[in-house]
């Protein structure tokens, strides 16, 4: 599989993750499955960002002063070949945010389960007023 194909299938996988996530949120009755759906959507978006930063045959975008002094012309080559590192930084941040959201959601789920003795959305939210 060449670089372009990897990118293409990564985007397809990301779209699938998001669709499955949306399906889980809308149609699944179990709270845990809904939470997994939310996380799948986040993971899909992360995959889009990673794929954006991916460069077929790209190099790690770090250049040392020593390397530059050895070969000053290396910057042009570096600029041509280096992967785009910004999306990776964004993904790291989003993973941390996702983990925090997941922790709070699971904490709420424990409390709701203790109160209702059920994980069914219909059971828990049946008395909800609009």
């Amino acid at each position: 599989m060449n670089g372009s194909e990897v990118q293409f299938w990564s985007f397809v996988t990301a779209a699938l993750l998001m669709i499955i996530g949306i399906y889980a949120i809308i149609f699944m009755d179990n709270i845990i499955k809904k939470i997994i759906g939310v996380m799948l959507i986040g993971d899909g978006v992360n995959l889009v960002l990673i794929t954006e930063g991916f460069k077929p045959g790209g190099i790690v975008p770090i250049i040392s002063e020593k390397l530059y002094n050895q070969s000053p012309g290396i910057f042009q080559e570096f600029a041509d070949q280096a992967s785009y590192s910004l999306p990776f930084a964004l993904v790291l941040t989003n993973i941390v945010i996702g983990a925090s959201t997941l922790a709070v959601l699971l904490g709420i789920t424990i409390k709701l389960y203790q109160h209702y003795n059920s994980l069914s959305v219909h059971e828990i939210f049946k008395e909800e007023k609009i």
Binding site: I25, I31, I41, L49, L90, N94, T101, L105, I108, F125
Partner: peptide
């Protein structure tokens, strides 16, 4: 219950903003 709904919808809305940014 309110916080659960808020976080689930917030997760989707946040992903929507991030995808737009991406």
């Amino acid at each position: 219950k309110a916080a659960f709904k808020y976080l689930v919808f917030g997760g989707v809305a946040g992903a929507s903003i991030l995808l737009g940014i991406a």
